[in-house]
């Protein structure tokens, strides 16, 4: 049997099939570790059947699937596994919400959302995989979403 490079967890959440190289950005989107004191393990460039992937394991914390869905922006094929007593109790693939608020900065330098106004950035999801989003305010579509994460 192959030895796992990071340990299995007893309870918590495993985010699997993250696009290789994006694990740190996924943590950033989820506000981890700021919002959590749980132990977090990150494995990057893990070999799998479908090529390389990243994996994130958050111990003793079940992430709310709706909260995690927004990572589909940069990891559209990621799966969320809720682990209870070493078993996968729930599993689902991330699904982009209809709107993305406060996560991506508009790529248009003259967009009103990039100025001193009391609004968060806001994007409408046009397509899920690969993700396409459009600024709610100026309608510009950023091409490099991963680079625009706030």
């Amino acid at each position: 049997m192959k030895e796992l490079k990071i340990q299995t967890i007893k309870n918590g959440t495993v985010i699997d099939h993250i696009t290789a190289g994006n694990a740190v950005k996924v943590l950033h989107i989820l506000g981890i570790p700021k919002t959590s004191s749980s132990t977090v393990s990150v494995a990057m460039n893990v070999k799998s059947k479908l090529g390389k992937k990243d994996i994130v394991k958050v111990e003793n914390r079940e992430l709310d699937p709706q909260e995690v869905d927004k990572i589909a922006l940069i990891a559209p094929k990621a799966t969320i596994n809720i682990i209870r007593d070493f078993e996968v109790a729930e599993k689902h693939r991330v699904k982009l919400p209809k709107e993305i608020v406060g996560i991506v900065r508009c790529s248009n330098p003259t967009c009103v959302s990039n100025f001193n106004e009391p609004v968060e950035s806001r994007f409408i999801v046009i397509r899920e995989d690969p993700p396409r989003i459009k600024c709610y305010f100026c309608e510009r579509e950023p091409e490099d979403i991963a680079e625009r994460i706030i």
């Binding site: 248009n108 003259t110 967009c111 009103v112 959302s113 106004e117 609004v119 100026c138 309608e139 510009r140």
Partner: peptide, 27 residues
Amino acid sequence: HPQEGAARLAAEFADVPVLNAGDGAGR
């Protein structure tokens, strides 16, 4: 307004109807 999306933002903060008379290079 010179900033794109300014009219959409204005509509967020106004209860009365907002008409966009040109927002930068936008609409």
